[in-house]
């Protein structure tokens, strides 16, 4: 049993190393030009060589992403509450939300640039726009799927709508909410990097674009790796928060209090 658990923990790291080994080997065996696909070792070398630029731009991307994501959490939670609490608002707004979510966010960036100029603000807003949708949907779903029997119990007590929402609806939708945060935070990175690539003067997206323009392909890949690492790290952080906040939804993990 103990060995199994150890293997389980090691598995993702082994898979990661295996990917790099296969990648490296494939590049060597098939003599792939580093201009087309650099070896991972070259990407890491570029990462070290340009560590200062990467550090600076990664920090920028990280900040814009988290800021946009934070706005998405506040806005998504609020809109989810409204949409989930009222069948009328749900019916009225849902097609609108779906329509909005179907718009590729790439197409929105030029508009944001017209309104706010390039750089920080459009990156934050793109991260926000791309990541609020899953939060809204999940919170609304959690509220809308309240058991009718439970609603009857509460209504027959003369409970106010706000009480039902705060005491039952909201806690019920928390596991869905936290699950959606994991997805939303990785989407937020997509949003900010899109904006930086199209209309940035800072950030990993901008760095990759400049590196590509000057044919420093290993540096482009270094940028990709940095974004992935940030995404995985934030995902893991929110997975941890999810476990802490809604342990009751994962019955096995909670001790008898």
């Amino acid at each position: 049993m103990k060995r199994n658990k150890l293997a389980e923990q090691a598995a993702p790291w082994i898979a990661l190393v295996a990917m790099f080994v296969v990648w490296e080997a494939a590049c060597v065996v098939f003599k792939v030009d580093s201009f087309v696909l650099p070896r991972p070792s070259q990407a890491f070398a570029a990462m070290w060589e340009f560590r200062q630029a990467i550090w600076h731009n990664a920090r920028f991307t990280f900040t814009t992403t988290l800021l946009g994501f934070a706005i998405a959490v506040g806005f998504g939670l609020l809109l989810g509450l409204v949409v989930g609490a009222s069948a009328f608002v749900y019916k009225a707004l849902y097609p609108l939300l779906i329509g909005f979510n179907s718009i590729p966010k790439v197409a929105v960036v030029p508009i944001l640039v017209i309104w706010f100029g390039i750089g920080f603000v459009p990156a934050v807003l793109t991260a926000f726009l791309i990541s609020f949708f899953p939060i809204v949907v999940n919170v609304a779903t959690g509220l809308a799927t309240l058991e009718p029997e439970l609603r009857d119990v509460l209504r027959s007590l003369g409970a106010r709508k706000i009480d039902i929402l705060l005491k039952v609806g909201l806690p019920r939708s928390m596991p869905l909410f936290f699950a959606s945060l994991k997805v939303a935070v990785t989407l937020a990175f997509v949003g900010s990097v899109i904006s930086e690539t199209m209309a940035g003067n800072e950030g990993i997206g901008h760095l990759m674009l400049s590196a590509g323009a000057s044919f420093r392909v290993p540096l482009v890949f270094a940028g990709l790796l940095v974004i992935s690492v940030m995404g995985v790290a934030m995902y893991a952080a929110f997975a941890w928060i999810e476990q802490r906040m809604t342990g009751w939804a994962y019955r096995g993990d909670v001790n008898a209090a």
Binding site: E147, E149, L150, D152, V153, L154, L157, G158, A159, R160, D163, I164, K167, V168, P171, R172, T246, W248, A249, A257
Partner: peptide, 24 residues
């Protein structure tokens, strides 16, 4: 009802006391 509809995040005693928190 047939379904006990207890709230999983509340302890048993807090579930029993739920009506007191919302009853008009």
């Amino acid at each position: 009802f047939q379904n006990p509809t207890l709230l999983p995040w509340r302890r048993v005693i807090d579930n029993v006391l739920l009506p007191m928190e919302v009853a008009d």
